[in-house]
């Protein structure tokens, strides 16, 4: 799952660094992801994993790292 998350981040987060240089717990916002880009990441994640995030999950902190995104995806039923 984390490889697919990295793929989405590579295509949509517009980071100022290569996502492969970041650990799973690295802060994506500090790596240059804007609020606008984060929305595109969320949409792409919903599309890739064919899920819908709940409103309670749609906030900055849930999408701040690969780990926290993986946690959110598991919460909506994506197997780890």
């Amino acid at each position: 799952m984390k490889d697919q998350i990295r793929q989405v981040i590579r295509e949509h987060a517009h980071l100022s660094v290569d996502v492969e240089t970041l650990g799973d717990d690295a802060d994506l916002y500090q790596a240059g992801m804007t609020s606008h880009a984060s929305v595109n990441v969320m949409i792409a994640l919903e599309d890739t994993f064919d899920v819908e995030f709940l409103d309670s999950m749609l906030k900055r902190s849930v999408f701040e790292s690969i780990d926290s995104i993986a946690g959110a995806l598991q919460e909506v039923g994506v197997p780890a």
Partner: peptide
């Protein structure tokens, strides 16, 4: 406009 693409209710 961007948030409306992803927010639900």
């Amino acid at each position: 406009a961007s948030l409306l693409l992803i927010a639900k209710e």
